[in-house]
């Protein structure tokens, strides 16, 4: 029998999503910025720009450099801070039916815990995504996400204070990403999302200086897709919690690759800048793929490439 209405629903812990397509943190503002360009109510979930307890100014310019099939950014986690997020950004998102996932970041485990505690009170916040690619100021500035013990500690701290799903977002700038994934699973994460940006740099040969004021920046866009896909595969081999794939996804075909590698859902990042309607197109295209291949449920794709 031909599949006419494929089932696009997926779950991340107790969170049920109408489809597996989300917007990646830092590439979709607070949702409102894209309201005239995308139908926000069609999306699987909206993930907003990373929020810290206090506002952050971010890095000096130049903050962006285009590279072959990608871009470097050193925004420096500029954000409005928790209080202004709640008073200025959340009201708009309350009226959108799509689940809201808030990305959080901090300097210390206590920062993350306080954010989790306060956001737990907001019903609209369906899940947290914990950005652990930030330096731990109490541990000599080593990124939480590069050490299994620190990653464990942050996850556990957030888990204690947030009752709904906790997603931990992994950094690719590590030797063994599976080890970190295992640590956060053990600490009680409901899911992992990966990858954050890949550390890189670019030099202006006319001025003879690095293009970014911060010297180093995070590479994103189609250029990093093969790395992200490989890491999703490796993590899928090691953990049993759901994986959300991120990195260079621009088309429905890209998204399907991530599901086949073991992801339950995906996020679209840099592509939002170039094609603001990409998320909608990817949702539509994934449905078409399922129909054309006579697959009843999107869940049947998850990890399929691994079983052969």
């Amino acid at each position: 029998m031909a599949v006419e209405q494929p089932d696009m629903k997926i779950s991340i812990g107790s969170l049920r999503l109408k489809n597996p397509v989300m917007t990646a943190s830092g590439t979709f503002g607070y949702g409102e910025e894209y309201a005239s360009l995308v139908n926000l109510n069609l999306l699987g979930a909206i993930i907003v720009k990373g929020i810290s307890l206090l506002p952050r100014k971010g890095n000096p310019p130049t903050r962006i450099a285009e590279t072959a099939c990608g871009m470097l950014n050193a925004i420096g986690l500029e954000n409005v801070g928790l209080e202004r997020f709640l008073s200025e950004k959340l009201p708009f998102l309350q009226d959108i039916s799509t689940p809201l996932i808030v990305n959080i970041l901090g300097d210390t485990v206590e920062d993350y815990q306080q954010l989790a505690k306060r956001l737990n009170e907001e019903e609209k916040v369906a899940a947290l995504e914990v950005n652990i690619s930030c330096p731990n100021v109490k541990q000599g500035g080593v990124a939480f996400g590069t050490d299994p013990h620190m990653a464990h500690a942050v996850t556990k701290g957030v888990r204690q204070h947030f009752k709904r799903p906790v997603i931990v977002k992994l950094s690719p700038n590590v030797t063994d990403i599976a080890e970190i994934a295992l640590a956060v699973e053990e600490a009680g994460a409901d899911a992992v999302s990966l990858i954050n940006t890949v550390l890189g740099m670019a030099i202006d040969i006319d001025s003879g200086k690095p293009k970014l004021a911060n010297i180093f920046g995070g590479l994103s866009g189609p250029a990093i897709k093969p790395i992200a896909l490989r890491m999703v595969w490796q993590v899928a081999e090691n953990v049993s919690i759901p994986i959300i794939g991120i990195g260079g996804i621009a088309t429905p075909e890209d998204a399907i690759e991530f599901l086949l590698a073991g992801a339950s859902a995906i996020q679209v990042g840099t592509t939002n800048f170039i094609n603001p309607k990409a998320t909608e197109e990817i949702i539509h295209g994934m449905g078409t793929y399922l129909r054309e291949h006579n697959i009843a449920s999107i869940r049947d794709l998850i990890g399929r490439a691994r079983h052969t």
């Binding site: 830092g26 840099t270 800048f273």
Partner: peptide, 13 residues
């Protein structure tokens, strides 16, 4: 330099 033009990337500081 701008990536989005939409106040989303915060690159144009």
């Amino acid at each position: 330099i701008m990536a989005c033009g939409l106040a989303a990337c915060l690159g144009c500081a």
